[in-house]
Nucleic acid binder design. Structure first.
Lengths: 186, 186, 186, 186
DNA sequence: GATGAATGAGGATTCATTCAT
DNA sequence: TATGAATGAATCCTCATTCAT
């Protein structure tokens, strides 16, 4: 039984990512999951509910931050690791992210699943922690916005290769650029 | 006759902004425009077509940049004016922007209407121009991404008051913060 | 003004023949006639009316029989000339005929425009006349049906070249075949 | 479940025969079948599809010929039986036939459902078979056309009572007439 | 006489969801 | 638990026709 549930969730992820919430149909999801459409309703009662379940699952599994663990490292290392880690994750889940952003923007996601908000709050908390550790007195809000902006622009303004496919050197250039920017206001 | 067309466009803007492309119905638009649904089809032939017409119009009227005009000013002034101008516009059209972003992310917008792409390319061109004027040798792509990120984060991470409602002083703090960041890599 | 009316009728013939009554749209006819859609309504008040006008016109111009003129010729000549004349006309107006038949079958044509009925009655009258002249005592109804059948089968069962494109010899074979059949019951 | 499907098919036959393909509405069919309109779409996916399914079914059930079985009988018997059998069937399904013909003429039927073509080919095959058996050397094409014509004229030129309601004597007159015609060219 | 603008009515089709087994 | 069958509600769109100029 767990089996069918998993099949449905996997299928739902695919279809939602490919089509978005509104254009995904329970029919297609059921078909992709190789399950009767009703089965899906038995388990999730509602398309919206299935969607949220899926999102929750994804958010837990793919986008956990370890930001707190590194809060105590020195500032350069802290920023570099955050940026590298997040850019890696975002670029690897590009399509998923786009969908999450889109659905957040359309208001289809309850606040505890709102992707940009989650990112932003996560960043703020981590940065606050680090600044406390390091006794830095700077505008947490703005720094968080700055880092968030860097991340977003990597999702929305992509031309060339995604971050995770860059060479070590190329990544270093980018990371360093952003690091300088961030340190300019400390 | 222009009259009804305008009514329709105005209504369409409202409804599309409020609901997004998929959930907006031609019926609702017609009703809000106080026009028979058919009239709308006579004039725009298709919901998609109406949508694109509306977007095009909005993009022309609301989001024209004067970035080129200020490319020759000194770097501080250049960055500050861009940021201030864009933040003002974006924050004033917050809901519209969200819709534009969402639809772009969902792939409902042909490339010449793709909002983030348009912003990013506009920024790049302006920055390139300025750097040429000033004989600055820096990574245009990354600077554009940086500015783009700042703008995006103001759309997506808003908690408090929107930019355009801030006091002169508050704006100054923000602008200055970002200016320092930008100059760190020149 | 006659001008526009004629344009409309010509266009209507084309479109009705191409699409049939139901699938022809007044829009398409107007466009093909290079006339505003309303103009068509000014002149014909109704799609049905336009259709009937067109049919009437076509029936008068294209399908007039001279069957009465030849009623006095000898029987062989009479039958041969009828068959040849009708087959020539029908094969030259193949698409039009198909449309007329179809619309008759669908009941879209008032009785005085009902194509098969018109043909059948015309045949009966001519045959009766001829039989009276020649003092032949035979079943007019059945002979008319027979000739009608020959004509219909040439419209509906066409494989090869249409009648009017055949050589003189080929036509002769066909005509003779049918002549023998017809004479078998006199 | 077969139940509802059958209800729909029966209703569809009625409505299509009464109104033709274009003017029949899925709504009316659903209503007559006492079924929700959607149910019809679940089962047949498309109005066109439903139509073709219905036609196929009708063609199989009502218009099967046993022409091959009688190919070996003597010529008189062969022709008489064909004519009688087909005239009986056609006259009993007069409205259905009219619809089938009309839709064929309008080009709404794929070739394997094209009614006149099916009839004609059936006739040709049977006649060929018979001629082979009997060592008759005659123009199969023309004979098939002739028989086809007889049948068609009985569908299209009806005034009086339909064939199947005639007395034995009346039928005999008609059949004999046509038999003489047919034999005239052997 | 001709037309641009507008519309009421209706049609096929799709979707999320429920019922009964 | 799983599902085949059924559906109410809605959506985009088309068409013949009328109004006002």
């Amino acid at each position: 039984m767990r089996d069918k549930t998993d099949q449905i969730i996997r299928a739902a992820i695919n279809v939602f990512v490919k089509k978005g919430f509104l254009q995904a149909t329970t029919q297609e999801i059921a078909k992709e999951a190789d399950v009767a459409e009703v089965t899906l309703y038995r388990k999730f009662s509602t398309k919206q509910n299935l969607f949220e379940t899926v999102i929750k699952k994804v958010l837990e599994n793919q986008f956990q931050t370890k930001i707190i663990k590194i809060a105590e490292e020195n500032t350069d290392s802290f920023f570099l690791k955050i940026l590298d880690d997040r850019l890696e994750t975002l670029s690897k889940n590009h399509k998923m992210i786009k969908m999450l952003l889109a659905e957040s923007l359309m208001g289809n996601l309850s606040n505890d699943l709102n992707f940009p908000v989650l990112i932003f709050n996560g960043l703020k908390k981590g940065i606050q922690l680090h600044f406390d550790c390091m006794n830095i007195n700077a505008n947490v809000e703005l720094v968080a916005q700055q880092i968030g902006g860097i991340l977003l622009s990597n999702v929305l303004f992509i031309n060339g290769a995604p971050y995770f496919e860059l060479t070590h050197e190329e990544k270093k250039v980018i990371l360093n650029h952003h690091l300088q920017s961030l340190k300019a206001n400390l």
